[in-house]
Amino acid sequence: MAMNLPSGRGKGRRAPMAEINVTPLVDVMLVLLIIFMVTAPLLTSGVPVNLPDSRAKPLDQSQKPLQISLDANGSIYVDDEQVDEGALPQMLEKRAAAAEGGEPPQVYLRADRSLDYGRVMGVMGELNRAGLNRVAMVSSSQGRK
């Protein structure tokens, strides 16, 4: 073991301390990590939809997708904005025409599990008619075993 013995030169001077105490830094970083872990799920805004479970892997995405949600009452939302069923075809055609780079955007379809299959298929038919064929159905990531 090495000891820090006073030297004969420079009496009264102390050697500089070359250690850095990282414990406070680690404490602060752990607190920040916990804060972000708690607040991150709260930052997802949107229409509350009870999604079905799936074991599929998430998709890679380069541009912002078009999000269409159907809640338990059957109301249709396009990017968190409620849309009447009659106005849906025109809105989808506008979105398809305004696509960046000529390629239609990816569509994320979120539908409540209690909805009728025909209701969801009606929205998918309107998406297909508007030329939005890249549709991904969103589910919760908790797969059943």
Rank of each mutant, 00 (worst) to 15 (best):
M1C: 02
A2Y: 09
M3F: 11
M3P: 02
N4M: 13
N4C: 05
N4S: 15
L5H: 08
P6E: 10
S7Q: 13
G8E: 07
R9C: 00
G10W: 00
R14C: 01
P16K: 15
P16Q: 08
A18C: 04
I20S: 09
N21F: 12
L25M: 09
V26N: 09
M29W: 07
L30G: 07
I34E: 12
I35H: 07
F36H: 07
F36Q: 12
T39L: 13
P41H: 01
L42D: 02
L43S: 13
L43W: 11
G46A: 00
V47W: 01
P48W: 05
P48L: 05
V49T: 06
L51I: 06
D53K: 14
S54R: 11
K57E: 15
P58K: 09
P58S: 10
L59H: 03
Q61R: 09
S62F: 03
K64R: 11
Q67T: 13
Q67S: 10
I68T: 02
S69Y: 00
L70I: 12
D71F: 02
G74K: 04
I76Q: 00
Y77M: 10
V78K: 11
V78L: 07
V78N: 01
D80P: 05
E81Y: 04
E81C: 06
V83E: 05
G86H: 12
G86S: 12
G86M: 12
G86V: 01
G86P: 01
A87C: 04
A87W: 06
Q90M: 09
Q90S: 13
M91H: 03
L92E: 12
K94T: 14
K94F: 06
A97M: 13
A97E: 09
A98K: 15
A99N: 06
E100D: 03
E103S: 13
P104W: 00
Q106F: 03
V107C: 07
V107P: 04
Y108L: 13
Y108S: 02
Y108F: 13
A111F: 14
D112H: 08
R113V: 14
S114Q: 06
S114H: 01
S114E: 11
S114M: 06
S114D: 14
S114C: 08
L115Y: 05
L115G: 05
R119C: 02
V120C: 03
M121L: 10
M121T: 02
G122E: 07
G125Q: 08
N128D: 15
A130R: 01
A130E: 04
A130I: 02
G131A: 04
L132Y: 00
L132E: 01
V135L: 02
A136D: 12
S141E: 03
Q142V: 13
Q142Y: 07
Q142D: 11
G143T: 07
R144L: 04
K145I: 06
